[in-house]
């Protein structure tokens, strides 16, 4: 097998010192090297989204970001470094890959119009414009600047926000900032129940 001089040179320079300086027969190793199908895996530390133990997980994804390939999850491993779960996972945690790569996932914004019997796909831009318009109308119709005793209350009781159990702290802060600024008093979360 023909081994390019360039490959040989670089290998000798950086990694295969033993090949060049020690004098091993480099050809078979270089031949095997050229035949390798290398895959690139990224390991990402995450936290199981289920209960509150917060088991560490390491999500293994393949796909080269540089080559613009969407990563695929190939394995979810219990984080062996995590002091609480020490690499173990429960039956829910063990099947997390199914949760991430699940054909039932919602992938398109949809709308169900008043009186309609079906979902329709809608663009993000349209959905966001529509929602903003609905919020503004509801707010302008019902905002309470002062209560019956003339006290400033600046509140909006006609719109509610309910947050979920895997919303992050940072997202929740944005909720407080945006929703309290709209005047919402009905800000609630899974945490309540």
């Amino acid at each position: 097998m023909e081994v390019s001089r360039r490959t040989f040179f670089k290998a000798g320079l950086l990694g295969g010192v033993g090949l060049t300086v020690f004098g091993f027969d480099a050809a078979p190793l270089l031949a095997q090297t050229q035949g390798l199908k290398i895959s690139r895996t990224t390991e990402t530390r995450s936290t199981c989204p289920y209960c509150s133990v917060s088991c560490g997980v390491i999500i293994h994804t393949i796909g080269d970001k540089a080559k613009n390939v969407t990563p695929q999850v190939v394995h979810v491993e219990g984080d062996p470094d995590h002091p609480i779960n020490r690499g173990t996972l429960c039956p829910k945690g063990s099947s997390l890959q199914q949760d991430i790569m699940n054909e039932r996932r919602l992938t398109k914004p949809q709308v169900r119009r008043p009186g309609s019997t079906k979902w329709e796909d809608i663009s993000w831009d349209q959905a966001i414009s529509d929602i903003a318009r609905l919020v503004k109308k509801t707010r302008d119709d019902t905002f309470i600047a002062t209560d019956s005793e003339g006290r400033t209350v600046n509140r909006l009781e006609s719109i509610a926000f309910t947050g979920g159990c895997t919303d992050t702290n940072e997202f929740n802060f944005l909720v407080v900032k945006t929703m309290r600024s709209l005047g919402l008093t009905y800000i609630e979360n899974q945490a309540r129940v």
């Binding site: 995450s46 936290t47 509150s52 917060s54 999500i59 996932r105 169900r112 529509d130 992050t168 702290n169």
Partner: peptide, 19 residues
């Protein structure tokens, strides 16, 4: 009127959880 918006799962977002 119901909007159903596809959000991101835990593996797709960064940020902090508190146990």
């Amino acid at each position: 009127t119901v909007y159903r918006l596809p959000g991101a799962g835990f593996a797709e977002k960064d940020g902090t959880f508190v146990n």
